[in-house]
Design a protein around this nucleic acid. Sequence first.
RNA 1: GGUUUCUUGGCCGAGUGGCUAGGCAGAGGUCUGCAAAACCUCCUACGGCGGUUCGAAUCCGCCAGAAACCUCCA
Length: 494
Amino acid sequence: MSPHKLYLYNSLSRQKEVFEPIHPPHVGLYVCGPTVYGDAHLGHARPAITFDLLFRMLGHLGYKVRYVRNITDVGHLENDADAGEDKIAKKARLEQLEPMEVVQHFTTRYHQNMQDLNVLPPSIEPRASGHIMEQQQVIQRILDAGYAYVSNGSVYFDLALYAQNHPYGKLSGRVLDDLMATTRELDGQEEKRHPFDFALWKKAMPEHIMRWPSPWSEGFPGWHLECTAMSTKYLGEMFDIHGGGMDLLFPHHECEIAQSTAALGKESVRYWMHNNMITINGQKMGKSLGNFITLEELFTGKHPLLEKAYSPMAIRFFILQAHYRSTVDFSNEALQASEKGLTRLMEGIRTLNRITPSATGTAALEGFESDCYQALCDDLNSPVVIALLFDGLRHINAAFNGQGSLSASDLEMLRRVYHTFVFDILGLRDEQAGDNHGELLEYLIGYLLDIRQEAKAAKDYATSDKIRKKLSELGVDIKDRKDGADWSFRSAAQ
RNA sequence: GGUUUCUUGGCCGAGUGGCUAGGCAGAGGUCUGCAAAACCUCCUACGGCGGUUCGAAUCCGCCAGAAACCUCCA
């Protein structure tokens, strides 16, 4: 086990706490995944990347993590004229497709997006539709405990009763009395004892095509149930970390706490973690606001708001440059700044791999590695780690230029740190290094550069500039050095 | 209306009661045939008004502005 102590901000206590797993070295991590009824947008990238960072960090620290991230393919309700109708079913009917066809389509695309972003697949990715039985079992346990009631074939959670015996609202800071005052009139309210009771099971209307048999009616599970059922199934009645977007804090996670406490007689989750939103012009980016940009559009540049395409790693780096609990505002300018910074970082790492050690080092690097650990262990402060990595870059580039030197042990440490933090933990990929153009290309470019060197030596700058210009047009940048010339592929994103 | 949070230099974005975050952009310089890259230097900010303190951008209060949640949402 690593000697580094990991501090995480617990939404429940509203402060950073030392992370201590219930059953070390094992860690159970559950994160609310996407509803697969549309393409993933930039907002979806945030929790995926945030908790990918946590997953990688925990693994690096020596924990054995079971990471469960669900696919929501049933159960959420829409709040428009079709209130009460299942989201997936609605979309399916509009497009004359089977619901599962829609689900499959967008799940596949989601996976592709995540892979592009270098987000590791979770250990288990359960689907709500595959866990109807488990959800019904949770409902039965809540009924048995007396915290739910059946009404006209639907089952509702008795929040008023629950709140008498449990501190409802402690995650979100809600007070039930306030909720009573602000609850709106929605369909189906007459079935409930109180407006704020929420559905555990909903009887399906005749036109509703996603439905399952149950002891109470043919219908479908309520909004919040799948996470309780699936987290309990795969991580146990008590587990370590539950994550998701801040917008899920209330009511979704509050209801989860109520459900699992009612069903199991105890709270399930030790640490609640919530990533903040991505905003656009200062406003949350979301489907309901219609101001979102899909990941596909970002990667291809096909969206009116985009000046150009942005590579998956530029997006990932952009997100990691902000702390996960801060909002991060989208703009072309910010994205391009990230893109350039990332290129600089990657070029620096390539440089690092080519430096030869000196007898002594001139760079002040003591504490560099531990500072990096400390930053990430401080509630996953990725922006600080990135700042440190940029600091280190200066020493690396200076040494490469002969304006300083790095000892063998300095180099060994730097290579370890950059490899570990950049690739393993931050999960960045060198998008150019992936292009293996083969030995022939290497040889050809090298040969052209030789000719160019000869031209330069003969002061035939017309020829040397011609070669440089042509290679540049082909995406190969030349960098003259004292001892010859370097070249590299310009990243596709530029 | 209720709850919560935020307001940092041209832009993005960290952070701590006292010591230059970092990136991008900009200016100057080194290097260079030129260019690019790299390196060096500069641009040193914390919404407003009070208060606590030897000292606050960091703590407290008020004001202004913004956002999130209260309804599906990452």
